[in-house]
Amino acid sequence: MKKIILSLLLVINGLMSSFAQSNTGVEMATGLRSSGKIYVVVAVLAVLFLGLAIYLITIDRKISRLEKQQKE
């Protein structure tokens, strides 16, 4: 664990000293981004989340209806 912390500190140190030269050494998912495929992932996640949100809303409304029934 100490090794990891030490290396992390070293890396931070390196970054601090060379932040101006935009660190190109680190590999990021640029391929997925440039080919535009990342939008597919975003769309899928957004659809899934919206589905869940709508499901939540229907549950909410159902409970509201039950509460109304209870009052009567």
Binding site: V26, M28, A29, Y39, L45, L50, A53
Partner: peptide, 22 residues
């Protein structure tokens, strides 16, 4: 807000760091 965080969280700019990457 969550929709925003999903879209911007995946598309937005993040600093390029070793070990953690994306």
């Amino acid at each position: 807000l969550l929709l925003y965080s999903i879209i911007m969280g995946l598309l937005g700019h993040v600093p390029a760091l070793p070990i953690v990457h994306e």
